[in-house]
Write a protein that binds this DNA or RNA. Structure first.
Length: 595
RNA sequence: GGUCGCAUAGCUCAGCUGGAUAGAGCACCUGCCUUCUAAGCAGGCGGUCCUAGGUUCGAAUCCUAGUGCGAUCACCA
C-alpha cells in the first residue's frame, strides 16, 4: 500500500470520527514547494459530505491525523488545503524497499492476452526518411512500454511490397539502370531503388510537358504519358504472375530490404515478424466474400463491393474494385486476420500510422467488428502528427526529404564536435569514441522526437540543429554518466553499502525530493502504457534528472559528513541512475558510462 | 461543405482523472569550476492559457458556439 492509499484510509476514519460522515474518496496532490509539507489533502470536495468552513475542517482533520497516525509528523492548513508533513522514516523505508531492484518500475508479466504492435510499414520504392523515424521510434517505444507494464508484445510491420509505386522504380531501373546493383554502385539497396523512383518521376514529368506542348491538356497528359502506361502495364503483368516481372520485383525488393535492415539496426529497433501485403491481400478477399454472404458487405451493379457504414455516421466504403482487385482496405482486413491466425494469443493490436489515416483505421476497426471478431474491440490506432519541414511537406519524389541514415550520421557528427570542444575523452580509443558519439547523437534525436505528444505535428528545421543542452537526451545521458563516475569512485570504499542503510539519518530536502520522484516511476510506466505515450516517460525522466542535478550540486555525495550518510547518498544516486537507464531503455535510448 | 486533430512565454514544449501565485528548456541578462564530470547549478526577464458564453466553491483542463492551422472525405496506398 502506498502513502496515498494509507492516508486515504486515515482521512476517511477522521471524517467518520469527527463528523459521523462517510467520504467516498479523498483528493490528494503533491504539496507545492512554497508551503511546508509533503502531501496535500484538498478539503473542498469534502464539503459535499461535511458542512462547514474548509479551513476549520482541515484543521480538525490535520489534528486527528497527527494524533493518530505515526507517519504524520505535522500539518498546516492554507485556505482549503491541508498540507501534511510525513516523517522521514517513511521515505527511508520506501527507499530501502526498492534499493537494488534493477527492475523497479516494471510490472510482473501478467497472464494476459498479448498485444501486437505494428510500426514502420514502409513502401519498398524509397529509403526511410524523418517521417519514418518518428513512426519507428514511437512504435518501438510503445511496444517496450507495454512490455514494461506487464504485457506480452509482438513487434511487427506490414511491408507495402506491391503496387504501382514499385513498378515505377522497376521500370526506371530497366530503362536507365544499365544493370546497376548495390554492389556495383556501392549504394545501399533502398537508396539505389529510391533513386530510380525519382528518375521515373523526372521522366514522367518530361513526358507530360512534352505532351502539353503538343497541345494536350495537363489532365490528359498526366494520364497518357507513355512511361506511366508502361508502369501500369507492368503492374498488370505482376498481378498475372509474369515470370520476368516477378523476378525483377523480387530482386529489387531484396535490395530494399537489405537497406532497411541496415537502417533499423542503425536506429536500434527490431521486429518479431514481418508481413507482406503481397501475401495477405488474398486472405482479405476471402473474407470479403464471406462478409458478402453474411450481409456485412453488398455488391453494386458494376460488381464493386462496399460496406455501408452510414448507420455509424460514416460513409459507404469500397472494399473490392469492380474488376475484383484488392484495395488498401482489403489487404488490411486480410493482414489483421492473418496475424491472429499466426498468433492466437494476441488479443489486441496497436497500429502506428500517421494521422492522415485516422479515417481509414476508424473504418477498418468497424468493419472487423462487423465481421464478428472479438479481438476487434482491442484495436488502437496510434496516430501521430506529421513531421514537416519549414519548406512544407517532405516529398520523396521531389527529393525534399530528410534521409534517416543521413540524419543519424549528422547527429553523431554534432555529438563529436561538442565532445571535442569539451575534451573529456582523451584516453578513449577511436572505436569507443565512435560508439559514444552515436549513442549521444541518437539519444538527442530520439528524445527530441519522443518527448512531444504524438498527436502534435513536429516542425523540423534541419538548419537549427537539435539541442544538446537543457531538456534533451544528452542532458539526461550526461547525468547518468556522472552518477556512474561517482559509483566507480565509491566502489572501493563501500561494497556493503546496501545493507548498511539505517533509519538514523535525517533526510536532506533534496534527498527527500528525489525519493518522492522515485516513488512515481511505476505509475508513470502504467500511465504511459495506457495512453500509448512515450512522452510521459521522457518528461518524467527529465524531472527526475533535474531533481538529481540539484541534489548533486547542493549536497556532497562522497564527501558526506558520516559514512552512513555517504553510503545512503551513493545508494540513492545508484537508484536514480538505474531508473534513468530503465526509463531510457523503454524509449530505446542508450546511456553511456562516460561522456 | 461534413468529420477528426491541434491552439499555453519571442521560439520548442510540460501541465495526471477540474484545485493554491500556470511550469520547463532555448534565447537574453547576473552569479558559481583549487572540492564527486560546468552537456551542470543558483537566480533574473518574459503569459489575454485563440475568442465568447456556460457548468462549478474553483476552469488552461469539462460543455456549447466561433476563429486560425493541419488532416481527411478516391475503384491511391
Amino acid at each position: 500500500m502506498n502513502l496515498q492509499e494509507t492516508l486515504e484510509l486515515h482521512v476517511k476514519a477522521a471524517i467518520k470520527a469527527l463528523f459521523q460522515s462517510e467520504l467516498e474518496s479523498v483528493e490528494f496532490q503533491a504539496t507545492r514547494k512554497e508551503f511546508a509539507g509533503d502531501i496535500t489533502v484538498v478539503v473542498f470536495p469534502m464539503l459535499r459530505v461535511v458542512k462547514g468552513n474548509p479551513a476549520v475542517i482541515g484543521e480538525q482533520v490535520g489534528q486527528y491525523l497527527q494524533d493518530n497516525v505515526d507517519l504524520v509528523k505535522g500539518f498546516n492548513v492554507v485556505k482549503g488545503f491541508l498540507n501534511i508533513e510525513i516523517d522521514d522514516s517513511y521515505y527511508i523505508n520506501f527507499f530501502k524497499s526498492i534499493n537494488g531492484n534493477q527492475n523497479y518500475g516494471f510490472a510482473e508479466p501478467k497472464d494476459d492476452k498479448a498485444i501486437m504492435v505494428e510500426y514502420s510499414s514502409p513502401n519498398t520504392n524509397k529509403p526511410l526518411h524523418l517521417g519514418h523515424v518518428r513512426n519507428v521510434l514511437l512504435g518501438y517505444s510503445v511496444a517496450e512500454i507495454l512490455k514494461a507494464s506487464g504485457k506480452k508484445v509482438y513487434k511487427t510491420q506490414i511491408i507495402n511490397d506491391r503496387g504501382i509505386h514499385i513498378c515505377k522504380s522497376m521500370l526506371a531501373w530497366e530503362r536507365f539502370g544499365n544493370g546497376e546493383t548495390p554492389i556495383s554502385t556501392g549504394l545501399k539497396g533502398d537508396k539505389l531503388v529510391g533513386n530510380y523512383y525519382v528518375k521515373f518521376d523526372q521522366a514522367y514529368k518530361a513526358e507530360i510537358s512534352e505532351l502539353v506542348t503538343q497541345g494536350k491538356s495537363e489532365e490528359e497528359a498526366k494520364k497518357s504519358a507513355p512511361i506511366l502506361l508502361a508502369a501500369q502495364e507492368m503492374l498488370i503483368k505482376w498481378e498475372a504472375g509474369d515470370e520476368d516481372v516477378v523476378a525483377l520485383w523480387e530482386k529489387m525488393n531484396a535490395w530494399v530490404y537489405e537497406g532497411f535492415e541496415e537502417t533499423y539496426k542503425n536506429i536500434g529497433v527490431d521486429f518479431d515478424k514481418y508481413y507482406y501485403e503481397s501475401q495477405t491481400y488474398l486472405l482479405g478477399k476471402e473474407f470479403i466474400a464471406e462478409g458478402l454472404k453474411t450481409g456485412v458487405f453488398f455488391k453494386k451493379d458494376d460488381g464493386s463491393v462496399w460496406c455501408d457504414l452510414t448507420e455509424d455516421g460514416l460513409d459507404e466504403k469500397i472494399v473490392l474494385r469492380s474488376d475484383g482487385t484488392a484495395v488498401y482496405m482489403t489487404q488490411d482486413i486480410g493482414t489483421a486476420i492473418q496475424r491472429i491466425k499466426d498468433y492466437p494469443d494476441v488479443g489486441g493490436m496497436v497500429y502506428t500510422v500517421g494521422n492522415e489515416q485516422d479515417y481509414h483505421f476508424k473504418v477498418l476497426f468497424l468493419i472487423l467488428k462487423k465481421l464478428g471478431f472479438d479481438w476487434a474491440k482491442h484495436l488502437f490506432h496510434l496516430s501521430y502528427g506529421m513531421v514537416d519541414l519549414p519548406s512544407g511537406k517532405m516529398k520523396s519524389r521531389e527529393g525534399t526529404v530528410v534521409d534517416a541514415d543521413d540524419l543519424i550520421r549528422e547527429m553523431a557528427d554534432t555529438a563529436e564536435e561538442i565532445s571535442n570542444e569539451l575534451g573529456k575523452l582523451e584516453d578513449y580509443s577511436e572505436d569507443e569514441k565512435k560508439t559514444l558519439y552515436k549513442t549521444i547523437g541518437l539519444g538527442a534525436l530520439k528524445y527530441y522526437i519522443l518527448k512531444v505528444d504524438p498527436k502534435k505535428r513536429i516542425l523540423f528545421d534541419p538548419k537549427e540543429s537539435i539541442d544538446f543542452q537543457g531538456n534533451t537526451g544528452p542532458f539526461i545521458q550526461y547525468t547518468y554518466a556522472r552518477i556512474q563516475s561517482i559509483l566507480r569512485k565509491a566502489d572501493s570504499k563501500l561494497d556493503k553499502a546496501s545493507n548498511s542503510l539505517n533509519n538514523q539519518i535525517v533526510l536532506h530536502e533534496k534527498e527527500k525530493q528525489l525519493i518522492k520522484q522515485l516513488e512515481l516511476f511505476p505509475e508513470v510506466i502504467q500511465n504511459a502504457a495506457e495512453q500509448h505515450s512515450p512522452a510521459l516517460i521522457a518528461n518524467y525522466t527529465y524531472d527526475l534528472v533535474k531533481d538529481f542535478n540539484s541534489f548533486y550540486q547542493n549536497v556532497s555525495i562522497l564527501g558526506a559528513d558520516t559514512d552512513v550518510e555517504r553510503d545512503f547518498r551513493v545508494a540513492l544516486s545508484k537508484s536514480v541512475s538505474q531508473i534513468i537507464k530503465n526509463a531510457f531503455g523503454v524509449l530505446g535510448i542508450d546511456v553511456p558510462e562516460r561522456m
